[in-house]
């Protein structure tokens, strides 16, 4: 309906404006946008090839030729830092929406359906959540390899499970309200009810949850790379860089500090954005009505 489309666009615009008005939102959005731009544009901007080894100096300090110095193989740190987020952002950028969609739909459906399927599904969710976080990822990767085609579905599946919980709780809250009863009484089909009545009311919660999920997935991805289960060398990745460089920390600290700063600023940006989004959408459980 035209009415719905107009109001969604207008609302999105309004939300964005409000977020930018908050300091946390402005900083967060700036950081995220900066990193996204960096990830997209870096291949054309980097001074060196990430594989190129400079025979003259390994573990060199900052210089005119290498602004952040070189790593233990003589590769330019600046180049590798600029490129280091690409794979992480690409994979998590796709896996997060997938996790959100599958977890969200499953959770909403369970919230509406109730009964036996709900009980059984929640036991399964609990069981999966009981597994120590990184474990299934490690196992699957060990067996199937570290390619993107393994990482992506694995991350999407396992990070979608907590989303089921959140979506189900949000759906419960909506289902208890009278406009759902009104829709049922009119005889709308359950699928229509989910699509038209429930989903628009849970998207707010899911958006905030999605932002937080993305940041956790990035952390998880970096941890995987750090442990050697993520991006394979010689491709640059921040987690991998920290792992490689920490042995030489006393000699060339920049090799560790640079990727740390890059990763941290991205995560901080996402978290600040999620925080500002939550406050703007009123999910912060803030003050009560004034009058």
């Amino acid at each position: 309906m035209s009415g719905a489309a107009i109001s969604v666009r207008a609302r999105a615009g309004g939300v964005l404006r409000d977020m930018l008005a908050r300091p946390s939102g402005a900083i967060g959005l700036f950081l995220v946008t900066f990193h996204l731009a960096l990830a997209i544009l870096s291949p054309w901007v980097v001074p060196y090839d990430y594989k190129a080894m400079d025979a003259t100096g390994t573990l060199a300090g900052p210089s005119a030729a290498h602004w952040l110095g070189t790593d233990h193989l003589g590769r330019d740190v600046l180049t590798r830092v600029m490129l280091g987020g690409r794979e992480a952002l690409l994979i998590t950028g796709i896996a997060t929406p997938v996790a959100l969609v599958w977890g969200g739909l499953a959770g909403v459906w369970l919230g509406l359906r109730g009964g036996w399927p709900d009980e059984v599904a929640m036991r399964l969710v609990d069981a999966f959540l009981a597994l120590p976080g990184i474990l299934p990822l490690l196992v699957l990767i060990t067996v199937f390899g570290t390619g993107g085609e393994v990482l992506l579905p694995t991350l999407a599946f396992f990070f979608g499970i907590p989303v089921i919980r959140v979506a189900r709780a949000a759906a419960h809250e909506v289902v208890a309200r009278d406009f759902i009863s009104a829709a049922r009484a009119r005889g709308h089909r359950p699928l229509d009810i989910v699509r038209r009545e429930i989903l628009p009311n849970v998207t707010d919660t899911l958006l905030v949850e999605g932002a937080m999920r993305w940041s956790w997935m990035l952390l998880g991805f970096s941890a995987l790379s750090f442990l050697g289960f993520g991006v394979s060398p010689p491709r640059p990745d921040w987690g991998l860089m920290v792992s490689d460089a920490r042995v030489y920390m006393s000699l060339a600290p920049l090799g560790v500090i640079a990727p740390v700063v890059a990763l941290s600023t991205l995560i901080i940006g996402i978290n600040l954005t999620a925080d500002a989004l939550a406050k703007t959408l009123g999910l912060d459980r803030a003050r009560k009505a004034v009058i």
């Binding site: 952390l219 987690g239 792992s243 920390m249």
Partner: peptide, 18 residues
Amino acid sequence: AILAMTIPEFVAATVLIL
């Protein structure tokens, strides 16, 4: 708290060792 949450454990650990 936000800062602490955003720093990955391996980073914090590495920094502390440093």
